[in-house]
Design a protein around this nucleic acid. Structure first.
Lengths: 152, 152
DNA sequence: GTAATATATTTTAAGCTTAAAGTAAATGTA
DNA sequence: TACATTTACTTTAAGCTTAAAATATATTAC
């Protein structure tokens, strides 16, 4: 049944399945630990990480494109984080359509804690790879970087 | 800021970010093409692929564990596919709690078309990798297979 | 045979995600 | 100035996802 395909197609399918499985497994572990140990989620972590990297704040649309998610999606996650006093919206003084979003002091403290745990988890998960193997893996994945991204 | 971490931790973070980015990019392309060119979604494709691999049908819980998603999730996707006459539920003759799910003739025909496109897309996306590079990539990813999977 | 327990599945509530529609403000053009 | 267009953002509708609760049936213990 699978043998229907040419050999190199089959190998390409195997590569993709392995890539997907590995990535999904790691992601599932991160989600689970964020949930159980920290009471939060990966999308929330991603938003907070983006804001931690931009201490002067980000407009909603810049935040969305940084995270590569839709504007509506960002609106929802930001709303929930604002309710919990982890981030805050401020009016852009120049453009009244725009808001800037940034971490509250509370959110910054919280994020630093999360980031440290997150780094430890990943360090642990990736520990089977030697430095050389890590470099090889990165350079192989690099080859898959620019494919069907529809040119604008 | 990133330099806060030890060198090998930083490298491990880079590996994870690259792995996540590559996998997400490929997945986004597949989702987009399934949506635009075929009017369907990846979860629906996954369910149909699972049923195509099990021509005698699967119980809901076996389908869920095969796909590694929750039972409730499977219920929703199956409901929608049943409505469109792509799959069908039949009562398990022995156990009246259980249903078996399988592709309808219509669904099988539809899936075969999707599967062929899907394989072409992946073959195309993975084409920058030589056979040897594909093997290397698989074996490096293999090293990340058994980590924090909570033992039962 | 009855009661307790376990299993198969669905339902519910909440959050994530997108595309498309809607709103408000800014910019360009006449 | 007025009108059209663009830009920034939110809302909506629909689907995906999970954990937890609920339902129905089967199995086990007595």
């Amino acid at each position: 049944m699978v043998n229907y395909y040419a050999d190199n197609t089959r190998q390409h399918l195997r590569v993709w399945l392995k890539l997907l499985k590995t990535s999904s497994n790691v992601e599932a572990v991160l989600r689970e630990r964020l949930r159980r140990e920290c009471g939060t989620t990966l999308p929330r972590f991603d938003v907070m990480a983006a804001l931690d990297h931009h201490p002067d704040g980000l407009r909603m649309s810049d935040l969305s494109s940084f995270l590569k998610v839709s504007n509506g999606n960002t609106t929802g996650i930001v709303n929930r984080l604002v309710e919990e006093d982890l981030i805050e919206r401020t009016q852009d003084s120049i453009d009244r359509r725009a808001h800037k979003v940034c971490l509250t002091p509370n959110g910054k403290k919280e994020f630093e804690h999360l980031a440290q745990l997150h780094a430890q988890w990943i360090d642990d998960i990736m520990s089977p790879l030697s430095a050389e193997q890590s470099d090889t893996l990165i350079s192989l994945l690099e080859k898959l970087t620019n494919f069907g991204v529809t040119p604008s």
